[in-house]
Design a protein around this nucleic acid. Structure first.
Length: 768
DNA sequence: ACCGTATTCAGCGCG
DNA sequence: TGAATACGGT
């Protein structure tokens, strides 16, 4: 039964078997952290602990998903399914849906994403006649978010002399009142933002002892992943929940704390021993991932930080290759060096693209690397950017769902009240707003009782508003009767949204239409998946159909669109170091090791910030299993003009004995004059610009990562051919015009008719 | 109401 | 450089 424990080393095993009392597991990079967490849960279950008594908190959906899968693999999904395992936000949202009424929230409250929050903040700033430069919405949002994650309410914020002083001397004395108004508006919309999910959970546990007791009794065993990334709110909630049993196990690595800028408090992990004097600490120091060279070099770098828990990461792996440091004349040449090196390694050792990753500090750096990879025809995928659920069209449809579930959801209302256009324009919406403000109610309420409130709009507009209200209400009426998919499809078509996108025959429009299709597919999957689950076992409640509001609850907290790539395509990964956390690759390139870029210019003035940059570098280095190459450029395009750069101080922190400086190749000389300085501006002519946009867009759908190699086949399409299109089906090419990237085909599709398609976008498959 | 042009502003980003 | 937004004309 517990023979799976033999897959663990001595220290890992001790950490797994020590189930009672506070436990801290310091897991060095590549030391099998996830393994310990999953085995620990499996072990608890095998010891007879009730799965309903286990709470496992992670930061990302991905981490939660992976952990679940691995536990299922160890001991089957039967019992393990009932463990409360998920992100902080999803678990707390779940608690708030049941207990939120105590805080006067309905169970169907909306969750505002960062976008919604910013829109709202922006409109408040406007309404208050504040200058949107001194009160930049991003900055204001950041301040409010920081306050909430430090558990400072709007009221406390305004009362706090120190904070008020800071804001006043920064010339932004109204921040507090924006915060207050923001909270009122959220409240009126029956909505919580991401920070509220934490904040309100804390308030719930603080002010309602019986609720606290209930969850303390329930969660007898608490596990927290990536503890070094917890912010104050998360820390306090966990502390409260664990106060009774103190069966808390936290796992993390202080050396990998890289989210200080968004409120993570590294002191939480550094002070764990003080918070729980009885805590037992286990250190996982054996690295299974990297070569001795990489581990040694990384250790040496992180050693320069003052604040850390002492540990010595070591490995049994081979020495491996030395770390290569390469200088480039420009960022363009840096891209070429990286691409060439990938090409060489790949050819010499017959490697897959997926064994390579290029990491950088800022997203803007991806450009030069992309171009170089494209020149060598190496398939790549850029991570980051807009994820599926952040696309406009997807959010629009979701907004219809949201307002169906929660009429008061104002951000949703504003998104869709005039989309597709129904003649309810800006002027009208402003009037509605003013009326709502005056009567201290929601915009929805004004719309619903438009005659009573009489916001001074013409009769014609009034009837348009009324029919919008009627339409939304009709959706709501069907919500509990129809399954999520049926209703979603009904909403998509009867609002005219589907038609609007369908009629847009531009390549972008097609893309949007397909995204809606994909969203509907996801809902269908959701509907069916849950139904099969119901048959197989006893679950909570007992609804016979999965409804739209349930789908919305699930989807509101999903942000990684990369639902495991189904087609495991083979590409080089390009991502920021932050995105690379938790991943590993055989060959890693870290680009842009220059002062003011990495470490970032914003970090230079404070020691903690600089140390965070160093940890970031540590994280980057320790992603590599076999080979690591570091590059920097002497000149780099920043915001459009060439800037002179100095090598990063971090390069000096690596012990010489681990480094291999390649002999200055002649290509660097020629590269300077020919490859880059002259070719660079021209290489981003309209054509390549368009292509890149397309790649970026595709790259984020997850289902269809950017694959450069695929693009070539449109050259082959000719008049008379039989082709297949993902949406229109089979058809015959009637005509071709244009050439190169602008090559267009006129295709006659069976049963649909003629379509004009830009070949570089339309993924046509040649049949005959 | 909507579209094309001008202007502005760049940090990493979980949920 | 380029994306996101503001503005002014139709």
């Amino acid at each position: 039964m517990i023979n799976f424990l033999k897959h663990l080393n001595k220290e890992q095993r001790k950490a797994v078997e020590h189930t009672e009392g506070p436990t801290m597991v310091i897991a060095g990079a590549g030391s099998g952290k996830t393994r310990v967490l999953t085995y620990r849960v499996a072990y608890l279950l095998s010891q007879g602990v009730d799965p309903f008594n286990i709470l496992a908190l992670t930061f990302t959906n991905k981490a939660a998903r992976e952990m679940k899968e691995r536990i299922f693999n160890l001991i089957g999904s039967g019992e393990a399914r009932n463990v409360w395992m998920g992100t902080f936000h999803s678990i707390f949202a779940r608690i708030l849906r049941t207990e939120g009424h105590l805080l006067a929230y309905p169970s169907h409250f909306s969750i505002y994403d960062a976008d919604d929050s910013k829109r709202l903040i922006k409109s408040i700033i406007k309404e208050q006649n504040l200058d949107d430069k001194t009160y930049a919405p991003n900055y204001v949002a950041g301040r409010i978010s920081a306050a909430k994650s430090r558990l400072i309410s709007a009221e406390e914020y305004n009362k706090n002399i120190e904070i008020q002083g800071t804001d006043e001397s920064a010339g932004k004395p109204k921040l507090g009142s924006v915060y207050t108004i923001y909270q009122n508006r959220l409240r009126k919309a029956s909505a919580m933002d991401f920070d509220d999910l934490l904040f309100n959970t804390y308030v719930l546990l603080r002010d309602f002892p019986e609720i606290l007791l209930k969850y303390q009794k329930k969660f007898k065993y608490i596990l927290v992943d990536e503890y070094q990334d917890t912010n104050h709110a998360q820390y306090m909630i966990v502390k409260k929940l664990a106060a009774d049993n103190e069966n808390i196990c936290i796992v993390g690595d202080d050396a990998q704390s890289i989210y200080g800028f968004r409120g993570a408090n590294i002191q939480n992990i550094l002070n764990f021993q003080k918070d729980y004097p009885d805590a037992v600490t286990y250190k996982l120091e054996q690295n299974y991932r990297s070569t001795k060279t990489i581990v040694g070099a990384a250790n040496k770098v992180i050693y320069n930080n003052r604040e850390q828990i002492y540990k010595e990461v070591w490995t049994n792996n081979d020495d491996g290759n030395k770390i290569v440091i390469q200088k480039a004349a420009t960022d363009g040449e840096e891209g070429s060096i990286v691409a060439n090196s990938i090409f060489e390694n790949k050819m010499n050792q017959q490697l897959k693209n997926s064994e390579f990753a290029v990491l950088y500090r800022t997203n803007a750096q991806s450009r030069s690397i992309e171009e170089a990879l494209r020149r060598l025809n190496i398939p790549y995928r850029i991570f980051g950017g807009l994820s599926f659920y952040n696309r406009k069209e997807v959010k629009d449809l979701l907004a219809y769902f949201r307002i169906t579930v929660n009429h008061k959801d104002e951000e949703a209302l504003l998104r869709v009240i005039n989309y597709p256009a129904r003649g309810i324009g800006k002027t009208t919406i402003d009037k509605l707003h003013i009326a709502a403000e005056k009567m201290d109610t929601s915009v929805w309420e004004v719309c619903e009782k438009i005659k009573e409130y009489n916001p001074g709009v013409k009769a014609g507009t009034r009837s348009k508003i009324s029919s919008f209200v009627t339409m939304i209400k009709s959706f709501s009426a069907q919500m509990k009767k129809r399954n999520a998919f049926d209703l979603a499809k009904h909403i998509a078509s009867s609002t005219g949204l589907l038609k609007e996108l369908y009629d847009d025959k531009s390549p972008e429009g097609l893309n949007r239409y397909e995204n809606i299709e994909e969203l509907l597919n996801a809902i269908k999957e959701f509907t069916e998946k849950e139904n099969t689950l119901l048959e197989s076992g006893p679950t909570e409640e007992s609804p016979s159909v999965r409804t739209l509001d349930e789908f919305l609850q699930e989807v509101a907290l999903i942000t990684d669109a990369d639902q495991e790539d189904k087609e495991q395509t083979d590409y080089v990964s390009l991502m920021t170091i932050h995105q690379a956390k938790g991943l590993e690759f055989s060959y890693v390139y870290i680009a842009g090791l220059e002062e003011n870029l990495f470490p970032s210019i914003q970090s230079l003035s404070s020691r903690p910030d600089l140390e965070e940059e160093r940890r970031l570098f540590y994280v980057a280095m320790t992603r590599a299993m076999k080979k690591l190459m570091l590059t920097y450029a002497e000149n780099r395009y920043k915001w459009g003009n060439l800037t002179i750069c100095e090598p990063s101080r971090f390069l000096d922190e690596i012990d010489e004995k681990f480094i291999d400086y390649p002999k200055k190749a002649s290509m660097q000389q020629s590269g300077l004059s020919f490859d880059d300085l002259t070719a660079k501006p021209k290489s981003s002519a309209p054509l390549s610009g368009l292509k890149r946009k397309n790649l970026k867009r595709l790259s984020n759908v997850g289902k269809s990562p950017a694959r450069h190699s695929q693009e070539s086949n449109f050259e082959d399409i000719q008049t008379g051919m039989e082709v297949e299109h993902s949406r229109f089906g089979k058809g015959k090419v009637v005509n071709i015009d244009g050439s190169g990237a602008n090559k267009k085909a006129t295709v006659y599709f069976n049963g649909i008719g003629q379509k004009q398609l830009l070949l570089k976008f339309a993924k046509l498959r040649i049949l005959k």
